Each structure stands twice: as structure tokens, then as C-alpha cells.
Simulated assay, not measured.
Amino acid sequence: MTPVDDLNNPDRAATARVRSWSTAVLVNLTLGVPGVVPVWLLWYLAVNWPLAALGWATREATENDGVLPWLMIGLPVLTLFGLLWWLANRRVRRSMAPPSRLYWPVSGLLTAVPTFVLMIVL
């Protein structure tokens, strides 16, 4: 069989779709484990500055360092994770060619699954 015949065979095409989606699921769930750290950093930033200023949250009593630690630690961590996530998903998406409007939201939600699990468990 040639590769063209494989695409015309419905069973092989369905198997290829399942395999490619399972790769996307595995990549995004794996990226979601270290992705807990950037999500926590964003939550900590939101609680201590804008939400505390609005009165919707109480500021951490020992948080008096200002913005410099966020520029030195938080920004590189968020940038590095975002770049790693985008590059990994770009490669997986190109290998499977799903519609963009479906792939990117699903990837984002799958990456957030470990964070949601930790929220529920802890």
C-alpha cells in the first residue's frame, strides 16, 4: 500500500486521527504539570495587587518587595513556559493538521487540567 492508499482507507485514517489526538493530549497534559508554576505565579500576582487594591482579596502580609521580583523571576518563568508551550503545540499541530479554532482551545484546557486537579484535591 502506498501512503495515498492509507489516507483513502477509512480505518487507517481514523487510526491516524486518534493517534495524532492522543499525542496532542499527552503533550498538553505533560506540559500542564510544570504549567502549575506559572498559573500559581499569576494567581499570586493577581491576589496581591489588583484584587487587593479592589478589596476583593487580602494582601499577603509579608509581600512588600514591590514589582522588581516579578520582573526578575515571574516574567522570565511565564515567558519561558509560554514559548515552550507554543513551540511544542505548534509542532504537534502541524503533524496532525486539525482546525485551529478547535486545536488551540483544547490544548489550553488540557494544559490547565493538572492545575484544576490540584485545586480540587488541595
Rank of each mutant, 00 (worst) to 15 (best):
M1V: 09
T2Y: 02
V4I: 10
D5P: 01
L7G: 10
L7I: 06
N9D: 04
P10N: 01
D11Q: 01
R12L: 15
A13E: 00
A13G: 01
A14L: 02
T15G: 10
R19S: 02
S22F: 03
S22K: 06
S22C: 01
A24S: 10
A24Y: 05
V25N: 13
V25M: 13
V27F: 10
N28W: 15
L31P: 14
G32R: 08
G32S: 07
V33L: 07
V33K: 06
V33M: 05
G35E: 09
G35V: 11
V36I: 14
V37L: 15
V37D: 06
P38E: 05
V39H: 05
V39M: 10
W40T: 07
L42S: 05
Y44F: 05
V47L: 13
N48E: 07
N48L: 04
N48P: 04
W49C: 04
W49M: 07
P50N: 11
A52Y: 12
A53D: 15
L54F: 09
L54A: 14
L54N: 03
G55Q: 08
A57Q: 08
A57Y: 06
A57L: 05
R59I: 00
E60M: 13
A61D: 04
A61M: 00
A61W: 02
A61Y: 02
T62K: 09
E63P: 06
N64T: 15
D65V: 00
D65T: 04
G66V: 11
G66A: 11
V67H: 14
L71M: 11
L71G: 06
I73M: 08
I73D: 06
I73W: 11
L75D: 01
L75E: 01
P76D: 12
P76A: 12
L78T: 06
L80E: 05
L80V: 14
F81R: 08
G82F: 03
L83V: 09
L83D: 00
L84R: 01
W85F: 14
W85L: 08
L87M: 08
L87V: 03
N89P: 03
R90A: 00
R91M: 07
R93Q: 13
R93K: 12
R94V: 04
S95C: 01
S95F: 02
M96H: 08
M96Q: 06
A97F: 02
P98L: 05
P99N: 10
P99F: 05
P99Q: 11
S100A: 14
S100W: 08
R101A: 12
L102Q: 09
L102I: 12
Y103I: 07
W104C: 03
W104H: 03
P105R: 00
V106E: 00
V106P: 01
V106L: 12
V106W: 01
G108T: 04
G108K: 05
L109V: 08
L109R: 00
L109F: 13
L110H: 07
T111Y: 14
T111A: 15
V113M: 05
P114Y: 02
P114Q: 04
T115A: 12
F116Y: 14
V117R: 09
V121P: 08
L122T: 11
L122Y: 14
